[in-house]
Computed example of a mutant assay.
Amino acid sequence: MASFNLTHSDPSTFILTGIPGLQAAHIWISIPFSMFYIIVLLGNFTVLFVVGKEQTLHKPMYLLLCMLALTDISTSSSVIPKALFIFWFNLKSITVGGCLTQMFFLHAASVMHSAVLVTMAFDRYVAICKPLSYATILTNTRIAKLGLVGLIRAVVFILPLPLLLSRQPLCANRIIPHTYCDHMAVVKMSCGDTTVSRLYGLVIAVVVNELNLMLIALSYGLIIRAVLRISSKRAHQKALNTCTAHFCVILTSYTPSLFSSLTHRFGQGIAPHVHIILANLYFLIPPMLNPIIYGVKTKELRDKVGKYICRK
């Protein structure tokens, strides 16, 4: 109870409880969490290393894959290390500044991740619908500029969230029943008027998610229309195969998010620890699967990775 009393005496500290109701099982829960996190780091850093080393992979598609790997590493690393410290060492305290910083990097990386998925959908649209112009429309420099725009957008959109909360008075009870500082969890710690923070967070979530999903759907709608106009079935299959990896990544990214959102809204009978475990797995499963999906579905990348593995 000493750590909980600290929240009342120290105005600059929050307490992250971990997974409520399963504190006794934290060590066991940490085993799959740490294994998944190691796989996330190994898989994504392997992609970054191989693409960086191989000149033949310095193409728009693989530059986008590197951006995806960086956002996957960032989102997982924003959440999982702190969760593991809670599980292993019972280090539940986090400063208010540290909490707001974690919240910023977590949400900014998520917004950037979504922007990369949209850019990858555009890449596939150009590759299939305008193949003769692909090299002139999507150059490495243009992809880098799109990545920079996505990063600036993520920072500009998310920075007001911690800034608004930093000006709010905090309640005496600063116990967050979670493993990380989510925006709404921190909003609930405020005793002031949080209407602006809540509305801004809702608008950002709707604008970013809905707009990006609409752009991805539009890209694939145009791709399907272009493919259906091709008379050759073999050409059909070849064109669709180029989209398989990206489509699988979209499913792994948005399906857990949709499932988590539905359980929060309609799963009142689901225990809180189930919600928290699902929220943490959302930052582990997609980043773990993405490099595997691209490694399996992209022969050129698979061959280059295999070359380095066999050499070692």
Rank of each mutant, 00 (worst) to 15 (best):
T119W: 10
S110A: 14
T194D: 03
V149E: 10
N173Q: 14
S190E: 05
Q102S: 11
I204D: 07
A205N: 14
P131R: 07
S93C: 06
I94T: 07
V186W: 06
P160K: 12
L148N: 12
H178M: 11
L146D: 03
Q102D: 05
N173M: 10
N173A: 12
G201A: 10
V96G: 01
V111W: 05
V207A: 12
M112E: 15
R198Q: 15
V118P: 06
T139S: 12
G97I: 04
N173G: 04
H107W: 13
S114R: 08
P162V: 02
L117R: 02
L164C: 06
L163F: 10
I204S: 05
C99V: 01
L151R: 05
V207G: 04
H183M: 12
S93D: 12
H107S: 08
S197Y: 01
V206W: 05
T101Y: 13
L202V: 12
R153A: 15
A185S: 15
T179V: 15
A127I: 04
L159D: 03
I158D: 02
L170G: 01
R124K: 13
L199V: 11
F122P: 01
L164R: 09
R124T: 00
M112D: 10
Y125W: 10
R174Y: 09
T194W: 00
T101D: 11
T119V: 14
I158T: 08
L151A: 09
V156G: 00
L163S: 10
A205F: 15
M103A: 08
V207C: 12
I152T: 13
G98Y: 02
C191T: 09
I176E: 01
G147T: 07
S93W: 07
M112W: 14
L159Y: 07
T119L: 11
C99E: 01
T179E: 01
M189G: 04
P162I: 05
K130Q: 13
L165D: 00
A185Q: 13
K188W: 14
M184G: 05
M189D: 07
R124F: 03
L151S: 09
I143V: 15
V206G: 00
V203H: 09
G97Y: 11
C191L: 06
A144S: 10
A115C: 14
T136K: 12
A154C: 03
L151C: 07
C191H: 09
P162F: 06
S197A: 14
V116N: 09
L100D: 03
G150L: 01
L132Y: 06
G147V: 06
G147C: 03
V187E: 09
P131Q: 04
D193Q: 09
L202P: 00
L164S: 07
L164T: 08
L132I: 01
A154Q: 03
L146T: 09
G98F: 00
S133T: 12
S133W: 12
H183I: 11
L106K: 11
P162L: 06
M103K: 05
P169I: 07
H183G: 05
G147Q: 03
C171G: 15
V149T: 14
T119A: 11
S93Y: 04
T179M: 11
I204T: 15
A121L: 03
T119Y: 11
S166F: 13
N140R: 13
I158G: 05
T136W: 04
N140W: 00
H113K: 15
M112P: 00
